[in-house]
Design a protein around this nucleic acid. Structure first.
Lengths: 345, 345
DNA sequence: TTGTACGCGTTATCAA
DNA sequence: TTGATAACGCGTACAA
C-alpha cells in the first residue's frame, strides 16, 4: 500500500516546476518577481499553481529568504479599546502592503512582555512596535544585536535615537490640569495606573504636578492613588481619595476607564459630578461620551499612531530609512465632567 | 576585511554543538527532550547555549518538525471589546502551554477573512479558531485538506461534525424576547448587525421572531433594520425605526454597542427609556453597566469561550482528541432599560 | 530569460 | 546515550 495515498502531501515548488516543465527557480521567480519572466511561462506556471492549489510554505520561504514579511506588536492588553484600535489601524496598513501582523499582550507584566518580545524575534518578525520606553536595557541590546527595527509608540520621545510615534504625555496632562486650575481648582487629586515600568502613566502624573507648580501650588502634596486598569479599580480608588480631609475639588484620572469608575463611585456616594467634584479622564475612548456626565478628557491619536507605526516600520525595513521621532498633537476635549468648583476655598 | 565582523551572524545549533563538543543532534535533543540526555551533557550544552546567547530559529524548526506550536484566531474586529476579551483568555491558555497566538481581524469582510485564514495556514498554524459558521464551503474544504483542526466559536452548533464552543444565539434572543412579551410588549422592533454571512446576527433575529410566534404574534411584521457595528449606527437605526407608525414599545438590539446608540438617540429625541420605549442589548460588555439606564441584555461567556477554544485546540493537536461541540449557558441580565410598556395597546 | 546547485537551521532516522 | 546524515521547501548566486 502506498503511504502517500493516505496522508496526501501538499504540493511543493518542485511539483509545480515538474508539472509546468520549468525549473524550481523559474517558479520561484514567477511568484516573487513576475516581471523577470516571459509572459508565456508566467501564464503556464500560474496555471499549474492554480491547478495544483499550491501555496508557498512560509517556514521554508522565511528560512531561505531570511525575511518573514511579518511585523509584531506587543501591547499591555487587548482589553483596552484604545490599543485595540491602534492595532486595527496598524494591521490595515500592513495588509495593504502585503505584510502580516503578529500580536501579543503582556497583561502589563514586564516579564511576560520580555518573553513575548523574544518570542516574536525568534519567529523572525522583521520589525516590532512596543508601547512606551520603560523596559530593561538588555531587551534593547537584544533587539539591537538582532538588528530588528523597533518603534516605540504612545510617547513622543525616546532614547538612544530609537524611532517613536506618539505624543507628549507630560504636556497633555499639564494642559488639562492648567485648564482646571484656571477654572478655580486648587485641591487636585490623581488616580493613576501603576507607574512602575509605565512611563506614560508616570508622565501624566508629572504633567499634573507641573501644572500645580506653574500655579504656585504644592505639587508634592497632590494625593495620588495608583491602581490597576478596570472600572472597579477606579471606583475603589475614588473612595480612598474621598476619605481624605479636605476633599479634592477635582480628581484627575490617568485614563478614561478609571475616570468612569470614579464617576460611578461618586454617584453611588451621592455626589454630583461636576457639582460636588469634577473628574477628568485621558484617552477619549467611546466610553467617555457614553458616561453621564460625559468625560472631559485628552484625545489621544490612537489610529494615527497605529498607522504611522506601520508605515515607519515598513520604511525602515524595506527602504532602509532612518529612525524618526514623531510627536503628535493632542488636545483637551471639553465635555461635562469638569466645571468650576462650587467651593472655591 | 572579514564581512562577518560587520553583520555578525547569530549563533546556530552548529555553533552550540561545536562549542559544547557534541553533535547537533544532541543539542537538539537537549533542547527538546532533556530527559533523553545525560545530566552531564545536558548541563554542558545548556551552559554554552547561555554563553552564546543562542535562540532556536523558528522557521528552521517549523520546516523540519512540520509543526509551529502556533494557533491562529481570525475575528471580525478587535474593536469589539467582547472579541478582545475572548482573545485575551485564548492567549493566556496558549502561553501557559508554551504555545503562541496569531491574530488577524477581517473587518467583517468575508474576502479578507478568507485571505487571513489562508495566510495563517500558510504560516503553519497548527490549529485555528473562527467566529461563527458562515463562510464559503471551499474554505472548509481547504482546511480539511490541510488537516488543520478548526474550532468554531460564538455558536453552540456546527455542521459536519466540526468542533465548536459557544452558545445558542436563537435560544438566548428568544428568552430575552419572551421576557419582554411577558412584561406586556407587543410591538417589538429589532436593530441587527448585517445578517449576510453572519449566522450569529441572523440567529438572534430568528430568536426574537420565534418568541413572537410563541406568543401568537406576527413575527414577519417585526420591523428590522440592519446596520454596521458602531454607536453612531445604532443611533441612526433607532431614528429610522421610530419614524414608523405605530412606534414599537421595545427596540431589541443585536449587540450592546447598537443598544447604547439606540439609548443615546432616544434621549436626544426626548424619549424616556424605558418609560417611553424599552431597549435591550446583547453581549453584556462593560458599556452595558455604564450607560444610563443600564442595559438589560444577554450575558455572553466570552472569556470561557476563549479559554475552552484554546484547550480544545491544544487537545486536538497534541492528544489527537476528537472534535467536540460545546454549548454554553447564557442568561438574561436584567437592568433598567427594559420595563413594562406604559401603553399596553 | 532560464536552469543548476547550494545553503538556510532544524528535526529525525538509523546505526553505533 | 550519542553521532552522521538525510530530509524539510524555498531563494538565489552563478552559469548558460
Amino acid at each position: 500500500m502506498d503511504t502517500k495515498s493516505y496522508n496526501r502531501e501538499l504540493p511543493t515548488l518542485q511539483d509545480v516546476a515538474r508539472e509546468a516543465r520549468v525549473s524550481t527557480a523559474t517558479v520561484s521567480r514567477t511568484l516573487n518577481f513576475p516581471n523577470q519572466v516571459t509572459e508565456a511561462t508566467r501564464l503556464r506556471v500560474m496555471e499549474t499553481v492554480r491547478a495544483l492549489n499550491y501555496t508557498p510554505n512560509f517556514s521554508a520561504r522565511a528560512l531561505a529568504a531570511r525575511r518573514t514579511n511579518t511585523y509584531g506588536a506587543v501591547i499591555p492588553t487587548m482589553e483596552n479599546a484604545i490599543f485595540a484600535r491602534g492595532l486595527e489601524a496598524f494591521q490595515k496598513v500592513l495588509v495593504a502592503n502585503g505584510a502580516t501582523m503578529l500580536v501579543a499582550s503582556s497583561s502589563y507584566d514586564p516579564q511576560i512582555e520580555e518573553d513575548q518580545i523574544r518570542n516574536m524575534i525568534a519567529r523572525g518578525a522583521d520589525g516590532i512596535v512596543l508601547i512606551g520606553n520603560d523596559r530593561k536595557p538588555e531587551i534593547y541590546r537584544f533587539l539591537e544585536e538582532r538588528q530588528v527595527p523597533v518603534i516605540i509608540a504612545w510617547t513622543g520621545s525616546s532614547l538612544a535615537g530609537r524611532s517613536c510615534v506618539g505624543f507628549d504625555n507630560v504636556a497633555a496632562a499639564r494642559q488639562l490640569a492648567l485648564k482646571a486650575i484656571s477654572l478655580g481648582h486648587r485641591r487636585i487629586a490623581f488616580i493613576s495606573a501603576h507607574t512602575v515600568s509605565n512611563d506614560r502613566a508616570r508622565d501624566r502624573v508629572a504633567g499634573a504636578r507641573a501644572a500645580l507648580r506653574d500655579a504656585g501650588l504644592d505639587a508634592d502634596a497632590m494625593p495620588l492613588v495608583e491602581t490597576k486598569y478596570s472600572i472597579q479599580c477606579g471606583q475603589d480608588a475614588f473612595a480612598t481619595i474621598m476619605a481624605a480631609d479636605p476633599k479634592p475639588t477635582l480628581v484627575m484620572c490617568g485614563n478614561d476607564v478609571l475616570a468612569v469608575g470614579a464617576i460611578k463611585a461618586a454617584q453611588e456616594m451621592g455626589l454630583d459630578v461636576p457639582g460636588d467634584v469634577s473628574i477628568t479622564g485621558f484617552d477619549d475612548i467611546e466610553l467617555a461620551t457614553i458616561v453621564s456626565p460625559a468625560l472631559t478628557t485628552v484625545h489621544v491619536p490612537h489610529r494615527q499612531m497605529g498607522r504611522l507605526a506601520a508605515e515607519m516600520l515598513l520604511a525602515e525595513v524595506r527602504d532602509k530609512s532612518e529612525p524618526r521621532q514623531i510627536n503628535l498633537e493632542t488636545h483637551v476635549v471639553e465635555r461635562q465632567s469638569l466645571a468650576a468648583p462650587r467651593d472655591q476655598g
